[in-house]
């Protein structure tokens, strides 16, 4: 009893420190959602395309159909799990490819002065473009699907990675120890991998989580428009697209997929914030 009362008085420490809260919450939300997505690769309660007219529009909490079924009797729980998997695969692949390409281009821009201007102007141009319109055109011309969506998202996420990599590696290259390394006779490539990359990796990890989240949102948007992921694959955006037909008849169908997206994205964004504070504590303490 007395122990329980004392707890609030103890200064918060360890993972419960106030500044660590985003990291903990974000990390947990992300882990749960990613775990559900991974499980769905091996097992889902029911076939996601299994139409069963006898069990149409079941409500939430029905035995064997935890989140009910849709207008064709498909199990919503299974579709939510498979949808999460799609969101995670596309979001993380697009963010990862952008990370790799963007980091390479950003490093080249920061260390090869001749290529700096062309690379950065190209990045500016891509950044100013309305990505969704291009994704739309792309999907309708070469056909929707995983690869098209990942390709479209990567094209429009890469510039942000180029900018961030360039800016932060410029900062590292201006440090004294780089000058020393140069005097020591280290080659440019060695400096890049030995000194610059490790020093900017934390920034890139944060950037990755943020664009992972952006990828999840964009994929949902494209699939909602019907140019992202289509059946037999399942996507959360696509589920919402299908749920629109049932608006006013079965409203929960419009709620669950959206909620799943929001939880995953909040998780990833909080994780990004938390990681940034973790890597750079000055950021959270700067405010006095």
């Amino acid at each position: 009893m007395s122990l329980a009362l004392k707890i609030p008085k103890i200064r918060a420490s360890g993972i419960w420190k106030k500044s660590r809260l985003p990291l903990v919450i974000g990390g947990s939300l992300t882990s749960v959602m990613v775990a559900l997505g991974i499980v769905s690769i091996f097992w889902v309660p029911r076939d996601v395309n299994g139409i069963d007219p006898a069990f149409r529009m079941l409500s939430i909490g029905t035995p064997h159909h935890l989140f009910g079924t849709d207008y064709l009797g498909r199990d919503v729980t299974s579709m939510l799990m498979a949808g999460l998997r799609t969101s995670i695969i596309i979001g993380s692949s697009a963010a990862f490819l952008s990370l790799v390409i963007g980091t390479i281009l950003g490093m080249v821009a920061s260390s090869v002065s001749k290529l700096d201007e062309p690379i950065m102007r190209m990045a500016d141009i891509f950044m100013a473009m309305p990505g969704i319109i291009f994704a739309l055109v792309l999907a309708s011309t070469i056909g929707p699907g995983y690869l098209t969506t990942i390709f479209a998202l990567t094209s429009f996420f890469t510039p942000a990675f180029v900018r961030v990599t360039r800016a932060s590696s410029m900062r590292v290259l201006a440090e004294d120890y780089i000058a020393v390394a140069r005097l020591y006779g280290r080659k440019r490539l060695f400096i890049t991998f030995r000194h610059v990359l490790p020093n900017i990796s934390s920034i890139l990890i944060v950037q990755f989580t943020i664009y992972f989240a952006a990828g999840v949102l964009s994929e949902a948007g494209l699939s909602y428009l019907g140019v992202g992921i289509n059946r037999p694959s399942v996507s959360l955006g696509m589920m919402l697209h299908e749920a629109v037909e049932q608006i006013g008849i079965s409203d929960p169908l419009c709620v669950w997929p959206g909620l799943a997206i929001v939880i995953l994205v909040i998780g990833l964004n909080l994780l990004g914030d938390g990681l940034r504070d973790h890597f750079d504590p000055r950021f959270s303490q700067r405010v006095r």
């Binding site: 949102l217 949902a220 948007g221 629109v244 608006i247 929001v262 994205v265 964004n269």
Partner: peptide, 22 residues
């Protein structure tokens, strides 16, 4: 604002039209 960032624009639209419209 953190929550708002995570809400897909079409879902916001869907929910608003559900509540205010339907």
């Amino acid at each position: 604002s953190q929550v708002g960032i995570a809400i897909p624009v079409f879902w916001a639209g869907l929910l608003l039209s559900l509540v205010l419209g339907v």
